[in-house]
């Protein structure tokens, strides 16, 4: 979506005041929301078809687990769950239900899909937000340091670290972090989202928040450092590129200090590629959380999705896909708005 924004160079119209920018932002928001409708429809149709193409169904698993031996009972269950309908009719029924904000019913878990997902979604969102925050903070800071200390020991150190965290598989990094910080040093919990079964279990209020944050550290590192490595490399090159532009030279000629030039002029413009990547990577962060959640027993949608795919629990899988897509779309809209804020010259086409 960010790609549809006109580049600063392409934009020649003078920017308006705060009011006109708010109007432009609202227009952007409206346009993006309208565009989201066919996008969501595509997500639903494609995922529905992919799931239908997978062999096996939750009904077969259910009968296996429950030792159902009567073929008549199995046929009755098939009708009860609407599996005897043609696939196209199942799809139409599903879309119609979605329009009414009905995500369906998880027969495996015997509860509405939205309830099943909403139990897990906050944990995943928390992990995503903390990981992205860490990645941005570390990536931007390290990229700035590397660019300011280019071709020095610090630049090399940052580059090596970035390469390491970029190359290290998330699950391996997670296990190594657990071994070091949990098993050997005993500083941080092995997994889970809160202390259970021990002192502090069930803590509420500030204690509970601190407990969750304590548990959040390792999964955030395992998920966020990979993206921090990417942002570091992008930020470094972007900083070096922007530093060569005329307006930076002008700023220096005006007598501004190095830090003033870097922070006030180079950094803000160099952030644009990072923001672009951030929007694009929202989906992969969500996917990456599936692995990290498994390693750290983080009770997010990752484990729910894994179980649901394994058990062909279609309603839950589709529900997660739809809600996940909504999160990614919302994040991209936010990125577009951040774009406008970072560079006032940017105009929405």
């Amino acid at each position: 979506m960010a790609g549809e924004l006109a580049s600063p160079a392409a934009s020649r119209r003078p920017t308006g005041g705060g009011s006109s920018r708010r109007i432009a932002a609202l227009r952007l928001l409206r346009r993006r929301l309208i565009q989201a409708v066919p996008l969501m429809l595509g997500v639903v149709v494609i995922n529905f078809c992919l799931i239908q193409m997978a062999p096996g169904s939750f009904l077969e698993l259910m009968t296996a687990e429950n030792q159902v031996s009567d073929p008549a009972t199995i046929e009755l269950l098939r009708k009860t769950y609407g599996l005897d309908d043609p696939v196209w009719l199942q799809l139409v029924k599903y879309i119609w239900a979605l329009v009414q904000f009905d995500f369906g019913f998880s027969y495996r878990q015997n509860r509405p899909v939205i309830d099943a997902i909403s139990d897990h979604l906050p944990a995943t969102l928390l992990l995503m937000v903390s990981s992205i925050t860490l990645a941005l903070a570390v990536g931007v800071a390290a990229g700035v340091v590397a660019s300011m200390k280019v071709r020095t020991f610090w630049d090399s150190l940052v580059s090596v670290a970035a390469m390491f965290f970029f190359a290290a598989p998330g699950f391996w990094l997670g296990i190594m972090l657990i071994v070091l910080f949990s098993v050997k040093l005993g500083w941080l919990p092995v997994g889970g989202m809160m202390t259970i079964g021990g002192v502090g279990g069930g803590a509420t209020g500030a204690g509970g928040v601190l407990d969750v944050l304590h548990h959040l550290i390792l999964p955030t590192l395992a998920l966020g450092l990979f993206y921090a490595a990417i942002y570091t490399r992008v930020m470094r090159s972007s900083m070096l590129e922007v530093a060569q532009l005329d307006f930076v030279r002008t700023a220096r000629a005006k007598g501004l200090s190095r830090n003033q030039v870097t922070i006030g002029h180079v950094l803000r413009n160099a952030l644009l590629p990072v923001v672009t990547i951030l929007g694009v990577q929202m989906g992969t962060v969500l996917a990456g959380s599936v692995v990290i959640e498994s390693v750290f027993s983080w009770p997010g949608v990752g484990s729910l999705l894994f179980d649901s795919v394994s058990s062909r629990n279609y309603p839950v899988v589709l529900g997660i896909m739809v809600l996940g897509s909504l999160v990614v779309i919302a994040a991209n809209i936010a990125v577009d708005l951040v774009y406008m804020w970072l560079d006032p010259r940017i105009e929405i086409r």
Binding site: V190, S294, S297
Partner: peptide
């Protein structure tokens, strides 16, 4: 007084949790 049944998907994670005393 209390019994907790905890679910840890990854066998390596279970081993670490046991070793850490969780």
């Amino acid at each position: 007084d209390r019994l907790i049944i905890r679910y840890v998907r990854d066998p390596a994670g279970r081993a670490a949790a046991m070793e850490a005393g969780d």
